[in-house]
Nucleic acid binder design. Structure first.
Length: 245
DNA sequence: ATTTACGGGATTGGGG
DNA sequence: ACCCCAATCCCGTAAA
């Protein structure tokens, strides 16, 4: 399945995606900011006063987020390479040991830092794709799973005020205390549930991922973490999907 | 003391 | 019939 050739092309595809992604991020920022402004006028002040835990990560600063996403992408690249090399990379088998673990002090270890690799500084951004990538849910047949949905949300800058990646921690994401319920609602709608989904129930489903190790809970409030394998798979699907558009 | 998040057992239900 | 995954319910605990 993962012959060296395929692996190579996969990587190339991903590289392309990452470059494209970065470009699109810049482009989307405009839209994003607009939405933020809307939210501020109707809802409440977003991204400024929200959950500013003293000394803790400040939630979604636009620039920082963008930076961290790129950083994060690089890390994923590294882990992807590792995962492929060790051939432990399938979309069903989950290796519990590949889950990133928390350090005793509660900070998340960044196990992906090992293969530090700059993101192809040789490639120049010139062939910019024009369409914004809307991630389509379950691709052909496969049932949409909760973590797919969450990943989708996380990749959507417009949702950054509800869920977002935790800067500088690969695969770690965090719900907004204010808007976590909104994510749940969307999830419920997506599934076509009769009863409205709540964060309480969604997080229960999320906790079930601990068994398989697909997502684990980190000790910080409202934050969870994808396993390396899950993340790689998602990123991979994501990029392939985009590349084929 | 109160509220909010977390954890998880148990059960149900849809879908493969 | 069986399993997987998610939804629900619900109760206890931890933490802020």
């Amino acid at each position: 399945m993962n012959s060296p050739q395929e692996y190579q092309t996969d990587l190339e595809v991903i590289l392309e995606f990452l470059e494209e992604h970065y470009r699109q991020e810049s482009r989307r920022k405009a839209i994003w900011n607009m939405r933020d402004l809307c939210a501020m006028s109707t809802d409440e002040v977003v991204n400024t006063s929200e959950e500013k835990l003293p000394g803790e990560e400040h939630f979604s600063n636009v620039l920082e987020q963008e930076k961290s996403q790129l950083q994060f992408s690089e890390q994923v690249m590294g882990s992807l390479a590792k995962a492929n090399r060790s051939d432990s990379y399938t979309d069903t088998v989950v290796d519990q040991s590949s889950v990133l673990h928390d350090a005793p002090d509660g900070r998340v270890l960044n196990a992906l830092n090992g293969p530090e690799r700059p993101l192809t500084p040789n490639t120049t951004p010139e062939k910019c794709a024009e369409s914004l990538p809307s991630i389509t849910p379950a691709e052909k047949g496969k049932k949409l799973r909760l973590f797919h949905f969450l990943f989708e949300m996380l990749e959507d800058p417009g949702m950054a005020h509800c869920v977002s990646w935790v800067p500088a921690s690969a695969g770690v994401f965090r719900f907004s205390a204010r808007h976590k319920e909104h994510v749940a609602e969307l999830w419920g709608q997506r599934k076509g549930n009769r009863m409205p989904m709540t964060y309480q129930k969604m997080s229960r489903a999320l906790r079930n991922y601990a068994r398989s190790g697909e997502i684990i809970k980190v000790k910080k409030k409202l934050t969870y973490q994808f396993s390396v394998v899950t993340l790689s798979t998602l990123q991979n699907q994501h990029s392939i999907k985009k590349a084929s558009k």
